[in-house]
């Protein structure tokens, strides 16, 4: 699809989504209060969902909101509230020495890599833009994803499922470590 083919509505949608994503992401970095940062993150996730819908990936958009905005950020907030981080006045102490320069380095490498890959194009789907290609639209998303997950990528899918179960069981075992050696009770 050439650049001239974009209609005004799709430009408006793209600009809105992009603004949501960028403002939210900057907010996560700039805001001091962790709860406000989590809210900014939700803004970003919604922006990504809008971008998915604009690319006809409705199912991904719905899952994005259900899983990330509806569950994962809720868990972030849950932990923040439990630890009461938002109210503490002494969180300027760096817990890990030198994490900021290392993080900056990591971000620089990632962004540079993505830009380098994008410059050469054709690296994921074989097309510069996926909108308007032969991808399924609307409810077709689900059929296509389901077929891919349960035929071509069946082993990867089952391995991921097993990995998640192992992680959950491991977390429970680590959290519920019983120390009955003290002789109390």
């Amino acid at each position: 699809m050439s650049a001239t083919a974009y209609a005004l509505p799709s430009i408006v949608v793209f600009v809105t989504a992009a603004l949501l994503i960028v403002v939210g992401a900057l907010g996560v970095l700039a805001v001091r209060n962790p709860v406000h940062a989590a809210l900014s993150l939700i803004l970003t996730l919604f922006g990504v969902a809008v971008a998915f819908i604009a690319q006809s990936a409705d199912f991904l958009a719905a899952v994005q909101v259900i899983v990330y905005a509806g569950a994962i950020v809720v868990l972030f907030l849950f932990v923040i509230m439990f630890l009461g981080v938002g109210r503490s006045r002494h969180d300027h102490v760096e817990p890990l020495v030198g994490q900021r320069p290392l993080a900056a380095l990591g971000v620089a490498v990632t962004v540079g890599g993505i830009i380098a890959l994008l410059a050469s194009s054709h690296w994921v789907t074989g097309a510069t833009s996926v909108s308007g290609s032969s991808l399924a639209k609307g409810t077709g998303n689900v059929h296509q994803l389901g077929t891919a997950v349960f035929t071509t990528y069946l082993y990867a899918f089952e391995a991921t499922a097993a990995l998640l179960v192992i992680a959950v069981v491991g977390a429970v075992i680590l959290a519920r470590r019983e120390r009955v050696t003290e002789g109390a009770e």
Partner: peptide
């Protein structure tokens, strides 16, 4: 097109109000 998934997404979002 995602019909009922919208319901699930919105019930996920409504947690935030109370929380």
């Amino acid at each position: 097109p995602m019909g009922i998934l919208v319901m699930l997404a919105m019930s996920g979002i409504s947690v935030y109000g109370v929380m």
